[in-house]
Design a protein around this nucleic acid. Structure first.
Length: 666
RNA sequence: GCGCCCGUAGCUCAGCUGGAUAGAGCAACGGACUUCUAAUCCGUAGGUCGGAGGUUCGAAUCCUCCCGGGCGUGCCA
């Protein structure tokens, strides 16, 4: 889903592509009224053999005008004024128009980038206010790998849209009002280790949370197990009957049998997991005793949550005591990830508004009571959007609606992006539809959805023992692994190690954290992706390291040549593109602005990662083929130095827009 | 049952609103270091784009059906 594509805030920057499109527009205006549609068919050539850019509009135009597409292409070329930019356009195949830029023009455009702090990107003229809802972990539960994608993608979008010149508010809509607090309160009353709490409050609270949820889970699992076993038997028997029928030739049962087989397998898995969970508690003497003593702990926890929500002063005081240290623990991870939020308005913030939300929906006759719950029914959807449960409690649907009202009315949001798991797609469809009916039709809502992180076994990423992976330990491991690679490489340098301890540590941090982020960002966010240490920290290929290395090499050139980059830029060096690889690099550098805009409009950081990889690759090829410092011709040397400087700036800027650090040396 | 998503090279994935001979990385194989850092570069090989129809001048992309997988589905978030 494109965001703001037609909004007033979106405007393609001044760049090669935009200029070519303007030229085509003038030529197209002779032929059609809606030239906009066709200028978008001018795009970078998908194959270098066809030149630098191609226009694909002659074929559809031929159809509409009832003319031969090649003739249309010819007459388009005839009225096209691009001789200052390109070689004479060529018509190829069924009517493609191929464009190859003049060397001089490309060189001049590249030279313009040299003293342009925005690297050819023009900031939007009419910024929109984007509120970006991302990360949103539950307070007091340790963050885990599941929070990674939302955090990393959301942060990249904050940065990219901000660079575009949009007004951006990143908001961490934390879960600070949920059932986990009931569990912690319950744990605090029953199991507190006061010394541990004094020493490390968050650690102790996390322990209490895990303990209570484990005991509650034990009883729940234990209660459910017999039913699951008998259901498994039942299904298994039914499956046997079906298979017999199929064996006897009744093919019509095949699909039903398949479904059943999946269900049986699923049940078996659930049962096995349950048995493991129960055994783990039962074989632990301490845990077993606690479980035995507290059979009603889940109910008790729910009661504590209800009391908190009802305004019970004691529970409220505990909540207020717990919250700051929990938030501080979260912030420590964000600092490490270098992620910042402009706002952190959690669920609790919206609590006072919820009753009014429901009332307002009822008044407008959008919501009505059904089976005891207050629901909004959206046409075309089976499931209702429940804003108040039959027990009177509000749901996250209610909170989300209150949040929308706040963001639009108080914060003047034009666009709200939700960087959330794809599984919540249905919730957001209902939410957006309800919000529009409720009166927020002017606001653009987008669910920036993403797939699951899978382990190497293709199942959701877990530790070997089956627990979810804590985010902190994930980051630690990345850095440890990165450090090994840094050490290995530095130790292996032909002239001996170059990096001191502090530098090695800094490089390992950049490479490790950058590797994790890049692995996430370079996949299309819609698809699930397989987490792999080896791939993300590989020293070769399409990784963060590859670009960080290219960047470090460039700085190495300036260091060794004792060339001051700022002085170089101010000298206004001429760009000479004598070599094919220099030309290819210049082309890549000129595409920066477009890569930014596509990333922003599509909310797809992988567009930017792909661009950066291509640019780094163009540089590496150039680096291999074209000596810079050794180049005898001074003009040519300065031109190459300027290309190096530009590349370093594009890479550093691009990576920083993805939240990834670069190093001076590695 | 209904709804959503996915199936592209041995592996992991790109492929923008349909465009030319479907691309990358890894792995494999062959080359390039008295180095401006080889954490690099260049080259070779590898694909009935799950299958069958349809729309179109033109389909990995749009439509229908089928096969295979995942997820969601009334009071968790």
């Amino acid at each position: 889903m494109a965001v703001g594509r037609r909004g007033p805030g979106y405007r393609t920057g001044m760049n090669l592509l935009a200029e070519l499109r303007r030229r085509f527009q003038q030529a197209l205006d002779h032929l059609v009224d809606d030239s906009d549609v066709y200028t978008s068919m001018v795009r970078p050539a998908q194959d270098a053999r066809f030149g630098d850019y191609q226009a694909n509009c002659a074929m559809p135009l031929g159809k509409i005008l009832g003319r031969n597409p090649r003739d249309v292409a010819e007459s388009l070329v005839a009225s096209l004024k691009v001789d200052d930019l390109c070689e004479p356009p060529e018509v190829a195949g069924p009517g493609f128009i191929n464009l190859k830029l003049h060397q001089e023009w490309l060189a001049a455009e590249t030279a313009r980038l040299v003293d342009d702090p925005r690297l050819g990107h023009q900031a939007v003229e009419d910024p929109l206010h984007y509120v970006i809802d991302f990360s949103s972990p539950n307070v007091a539960k340790p963050m885990h790998v599941g929070h990674l994608r939302s955090t990393v993608i959301g942060d990249a979008l904050v940065r990219v849209l901000g660079f575009q010149g949009q007004r951006v508010t990143g908001d961490n809509h934390v879960g600070d009002w949920g059932t986990q607090f009931g569990m912690i309160i319950q744990g605090y009353r029953q199991f507190l280790d006061a010394d541990a709490y004094a020493e490390d409050a968050v650690g102790e609270l996390a322990r209490l949370y895990r303990l209570v949820s484990r005991i509650a889970g034990y009883h729940e699992t234990s209660a459910a197990l017999p039913g699951q076993r008998s259901r498994w038997q039942e299904r298994q028997a039914e499956l046997g009957r079906l298979e017999e029928m199929i064996a006897e030739g009744d093919k019509s049962r095949k699909s039903a049998a398949k479904k059943l087989r999946a269900e049986v397998a699923g049940l078996a898995e659930t049962i096995e997991a349950a048995e493991v969970e129960l055994a783990a508690v039962e074989t632990d003497e301490h845990l077993a005793r606690l479980a035995d003593q507290h059979p009603e702990i889940a109910e008790a926890s729910r009661a504590e949550t209800a009391k908190l929500h009802a305004g019970d002063p004691e529970n409220r005081a505990l909540w207020e005591e717990f919250l700051p240290s929990c938030l501080e623990a979260m912030d420590a991870i964000y600092r490490r990830l270098d992620v910042e939020f402009a706002e952190r308005l959690g669920e609790s913030y919206y609590q006072p508004m919820l009753a009014d939300v429901v009332e307002s929906l009822e008044q407008r006759e959008l919501a009505r009571t059904s089976e005891g719950a207050v629901c909004v029914f959206i046409e075309g959807n089976d499931a209702p959007f429940i804003v108040r449960k039959s027990d009177g409690a509000f749901t996250y649907a209610t909170t989300d609606l209150a949040t929308i009202r706040h963001r639009v009315e108080q914060q003047q949001a034009d666009v709200i992006l939700y960087v959330v798991d794809a599984r919540q797609g249905e919730h957001f469809r209902l939410l957006f539809d309800t919000a529009r009916l409720w009166g927020f039709a002017e606001t653009e809502f987008t669910h920036v959805s993403f797939g699951t992180v899978l382990g190497e076994d293709r199942r959701p990423f877990k530790t070997r023992s089956g627990d979810t992976v804590g985010l902190e330990s994930l980051l630690d491991e990345a850095v440890v692994r990165a450090r090994r690679i840094v050490d290995e490489n530095d130790d292996a340098k032909p002239e001996g190690p170059e990096l001191d301890e502090a530098t090695r540590a800094a490089v390992a941090e950049a490479v490790g954290i950058g590797g994790i982020k890049y692995a996430d960002l370079h996949h299309n966010r819609d698809s699930d992706y397989q987490f792999s240490w080896d791939k993300m920290l590989a020293t070769n290929g399409d990784t963060a390291t590859y670009m960080q290395y290219a960047h470090a090499r460039i700085l190495g050139i300036f260091r060794r040549g004792e060339v001051d980059r700022e002085t170089l830029r101010q000298g206004g060096p001429l760009i000479v593109l004598g070599d094919e690889v220099e030309r290819a690099l210049a082309m890549a550098l000129n595409r920066f602005a477009d890569a930014i805009d596509v990333t922003a409009t599509e909310c797809r950081p992988n567009v930017l990662t792909q661009y950066l990889f291509e640019t780094a690759n163009a540089f590496s090829t150039f680096y291999n083929a074209c000596p810079v410092l050794k180049e005898p011709d001074a003009g040519r040397r300065d031109s190459r130095l300027a290309l190096c400087d530009l590349t370093a700036r594009v890479l550093a800027r691009g990576l920083s827009l993805l939240g990834i650090d670069v190093c001076e040396q590695m």
